[in-house]
Amino acid sequence: MSLDFLVGFTIFMLALIMVVSMVPGLLAGLESSGIDYDAVAYRTGVILVEDPGWPVYPPWEMNDLAHKDEIQRIGLAVSKETPNILLSTKVERFFDNSFFDPEDYRSKVIFGDIPYSYNFSLLSEDGTSYNNRTGSPIPPGHGYIRRVVKIKEPGVAEIDGSFASQYTAPSSNQEFIVRLDFGQLLNPSVGAAYRIDPRTEPVNVTITGFDEYLNETAPAPTNATLRTVTFWKKDPTRPIPQFTKIPFSYSTTDSSLYTLTIDGNPYDLTPDAEVFDDISLVLKPAATSLFTLDQNSILDIRFNLGDPPPRPNIFGIHDYDYNMTTVPRPDLKAGVLEVAIW
């Protein structure tokens, strides 16, 4: 009797211990949905913050509405080498609700078979320069991740009156050139977080205090005429390198390629318009990609203000480079990005 009993009892005890130890596991199985959301939020946060997206060149944010399907994955990082540093153009495109619809966010950022709800938000440290949010109101019980980021913004070559002494010279053709040497700009010795890359960021040229550049000799004019803005390129690796004018629809206004404003009014690139105070040209990356430039090319933006007799004295070449005087670049802006998934 006692041997049978002991053997049976031992087996019973072992089985009981195993079953009892499984009880918490059984309960955990019912709880696992909340864990899942946090994992999805984490994954989404990593894709947004640590990945530049796909395709990389040309970058996904350059695709227009007709080519939205070519965007495989949305990431906001400047490059894969620089996690947590976001590119302002990517951020703007990402939070553009007229461009992306909820289905795009699900298929290009969140991934996964379940149609998750989401809320992405970004706030910069100063509270004003970036305050974006997209998605539905957040219910309790959502998965969540918060990432601290820095945002890279493009520089602006602001050519104000203080440069006048460098760029005023009596000359037969009043031509002002802003020169972008890609070989210098894209040199890998400058980290991706600080690089001026016209292929991904807009080139911004602003000439202010224009009266400083006017011909002072009597009768002193109050304005000048901006005839044309043209783009020229030179490829130094060619046998006989020389500047050639880039074929481009100069007389079509297309704000996805460039914007040109004179004294605050928009114009195309053949304005023939009077300039009293300032000229502002923003050349978008989409235009730069049309110019078929490589990492050795030199791009000229030529402002022609020719006039007989010359009213402006402006003449010279302004290098768009890493000199903080010629192109002041803003500091990286700290911010916080939140992802909520449910």
């Binding site: 089985a15 195993m18 079953v19 499984m22 596991g25 059984l26 955990a28 199985g29 696992s32 864990i35 899942d36 946090d38 994992a39 984490y42």
Partner: peptide
């Protein structure tokens, strides 16, 4: 016993996502 064994295994997956990170 066997049902519990199976459910127990599946619950482990959700728990280890955060741990894996």
């Amino acid at each position: 016993f066997f049902l519990a064994l199976i459910i127990n295994q599946s619950a482990l997956v959700g728990q280890t996502t955060a741990e894996g990170v």
